[in-house]
Design a protein around this nucleic acid. Structure first.
Lengths: 111, 111
DNA sequence: ATGACATGCAAGTGAATACTTGCCTGTTGC
DNA sequence: GCAACAGGCAAGTATTCACTTGCATGTCAT
């Protein structure tokens, strides 16, 4: 349970950085990429990219495999599903109504 | 488009902190709460809670209304839906297959 | 009107974050 | 074998973040 909370924390932390979201995008478009290939798309040193990937791996969003001198990166979409199921779905409202509902309640509280 | 990206950034940043997610939970359970009421649930100063709420408001997850000397807080679930639609849904896979797929590809890349 | 309440505003602090530079190790191809 | 390649491992730095303390302002109840 506390474990669950820590996982959630790592997950949201991992997603908090735009460069890391970019990396997920890149892997989504085509995964199994090596570190140096991913580096081509980000304007920072290889070491910085490694650190971002480490966070993504800690959040279980990315899995890696070494092949020869290369480290290949794979996307794991499962934790994103879990975010949705355990975190977003419960806030769900009839979508088109949500904003109108909010507005109505704001006005009611105000007036 | 750049605007869109900044919004996304604020949103994920806002969600990155467990205390802020807690605040969203509290408002989900029952919103229209005043600042001082929300403070009762978090172990930090009122000012710190204000700062968290400010971030949630910047991310458009919380809307506020002043009534007399109180500031009432309302949850806006719409941005969460947008995260799902614009960000999570595209990573979606047949859920039960996703992990198996990943494992298979890792092994293939490895062997 | 005045004291208690609800919040706002601002500057300061410590820790976490996002990088960098520099060097070291293993791998591959010629 | 050896040069070029792919990545690992610190340690250092600068910014951002979460939070505090201290004080000021506006509102309500009696």
């Amino acid at each position: 349970m506390a474990e669950q909370r820590r996982d959630t924390d790592l997950l949201f932390k991992a997603l908090a950085d735009p460069h890391r979201r970019r990396l997920l995008d890149l892997l989504h478009a085509h995964d199994g990429r090596a570190l140096s290939e991913l580096c081509e798309y980000l304007d920072m040193t290889r070491q910085a990219v490694t650190q971002h990937l480490d966070l993504l791996e800690a959040a279980n969003l990315v899995a890696t495999v070494r092949r020869g001198r290369e480290k290949l990166h794979f996307l794991n979409p499962v934790p994103l599903q879990e975010i949705y199921e355990r975190w977003i779905a419960k806030f769900e409202k009839p979508r088109l109504k949500a904003l109108a509902d909010l507005k109505r309640r704001l006005e009611k509280a105000n007036g």
